[in-house]
Simulated assay, not measured.
Amino acid sequence: MRTAIGYTIESIGYVVGAQGLVSFASQTFFGTEWGWLHKVVDLPSTAHLGIVAVGLALVVVGVRTRQAPARRDIA
């Protein structure tokens, strides 16, 4: 179960981070709106870097959860 939860959190982190990165790049360099994040919230371009950080944090938490050693009691 721990592995499934880790993969789920990690996958959500990749999606959130990618959307934050795409939104930041599109607003900063092209002056347009890409992705689906702008349909949910209207944020300045620098706030999208915070979304990228949240995505990276979710990836790290997911990997650590997935790689946590399983406890086995051998008697």
Rank of each mutant, 00 (worst) to 15 (best):
R2C: 03
R2P: 07
T3N: 11
T3S: 12
T3E: 14
I5H: 07
I5T: 08
G6R: 01
Y7I: 06
E10K: 10
E10C: 12
S11W: 10
I12K: 01
I12S: 02
Y14W: 15
Y14E: 08
V15N: 01
V16S: 03
V16A: 04
G17M: 08
A18R: 00
A18K: 00
G20Q: 05
L21F: 15
L21E: 03
L21V: 06
S23M: 02
F24N: 05
A25W: 04
Q27T: 01
Q27A: 02
T28Q: 13
F29D: 04
F30Q: 05
F30M: 08
G31T: 04
G31A: 05
T32F: 09
T32I: 13
E33W: 09
W34H: 02
W34P: 00
W36G: 03
W36F: 14
W36D: 00
W36I: 09
K39S: 08
K39I: 01
D42Q: 15
D42R: 14
L43I: 03
L43G: 03
L43T: 04
S45A: 12
T46Q: 15
A47V: 06
A47Q: 12
A47H: 13
H48W: 09
H48V: 00
L49S: 12
L49M: 15
L49H: 13
G50E: 12
I51T: 11
I51W: 02
V52N: 07
V52H: 09
A53W: 10
G55I: 01
G55Y: 02
L56K: 08
L56W: 12
A57R: 03
A57E: 05
V60Q: 07
V61G: 00
R66I: 03
R66A: 14
R66W: 06
Q67G: 08
A68S: 10
P69Y: 06
A70M: 08
R72F: 12
D73P: 05
D73V: 13
I74L: 13
A75D: 15
